[in-house]
Design a protein around this nucleic acid. Structure first.
Lengths: 146, 146
DNA sequence: GTTTATGCAAAGGTTTTGCAAGTGG
DNA sequence: CCACTTGCAAAACCTTTGCATAAAC
């Protein structure tokens, strides 16, 4: 597993991928943003840091990084695919359907759940990056009066 | 909540929707398949039962049924949106990434997990239809030798 | 009869692909 | 050098939409 202080080059080589500018830049962007990002957001962030790559390149890079397990991909709604750098923890999120905010979800709860599913069903849930939706109890955008 | 022996007409009227052939047929198809289905699968199933409706109609019908809470919608991967008839229970599934099989997931485990997330995060996960992926312990398509 | 649903065709948006040129090891 | 990556443009893909016709209430 790549450490957070590994250089993009090391991370890439460690995964058997060629170290190219596009991949280095995407890795930097994803690591800086400690959150998941859409392709558009990645491209914008790249632009802010002075790099420009074609959309197709960004898609390919994200797919490559996902293929070697460096990046997690989630589909929230159609056309709203998000990517996130996989670090040691906090891969799981809850997204509020009312305000759209995304919050980290306690890893331990998820692991506990996965264990139980395995005990009960003999099934190992592959949850490196889970996104659950729901409503925050104190969501500012809702009059949670139920 | 619609009972499993309610006629499609009753179900529709009970939800304030007009009873039309397309809606009746889609309801029948979803109820017969006790699983979630893609739009393509719904259309194919309709064809098998002798009905043909336009794609746009099927999309609209599924959207309508979803709008009144009769059908649940999940995005697994891009262009792989699945729909499922909401009955009393068993809305949750685990899908094996190796063989593609979808198995029911114990509702109670999910409810337990949701409770814990709520306790911990003050967040009510809206999981009417959860689909988790992973690997079956005894998956026929895998040499589960890990 | 009025409102709503359907089919058709075409648009919309996101993601993928083919190929030539450029770059990494 | 050879294999892989990138940019560009176009295709493919799923989903939505506009409108005239048809059906439901």
């Amino acid at each position: 597993m790549p450490e957070s202080n590994d250089s993009p080059n090391d991370v890439l080589r460690g995964s058997g991928l060629r170290a190219t500018p596009a991949r280095r830049a995407v890795i930097d962007v994803l690591r800086e943003s400690r959150n998941h990002m859409t392709v558009i957001e990645v491209i914008d962030a790249l632009a802010l840091s002075g790099s420009r790559f074609d959309q197709s390149t960004v898609y390919r890079v994200l797919s490559d990084l996902g293929g070697v397990g460096l990046v997690a991909e989630s589909r929230l709604s159609p056309g709203d695919t998000v990517f996130e750098w996989i670090s040691q923890s906090n891969h799981h999120h809850i997204q509020c359907t009312s305000c759209g905010r995304t919050l980290p979800l306690d890893d331990e709860l998820v692991q506990q759940f996965i264990s139980r599913v395995h005990e009960r069903h003999g099934f190992h849930v592959n949850a490196t990056h889970l996104v659950l939706s729901g409503i925050e109890h104190d969501c500012p955008a809702t009059d949670h009066s139920d």
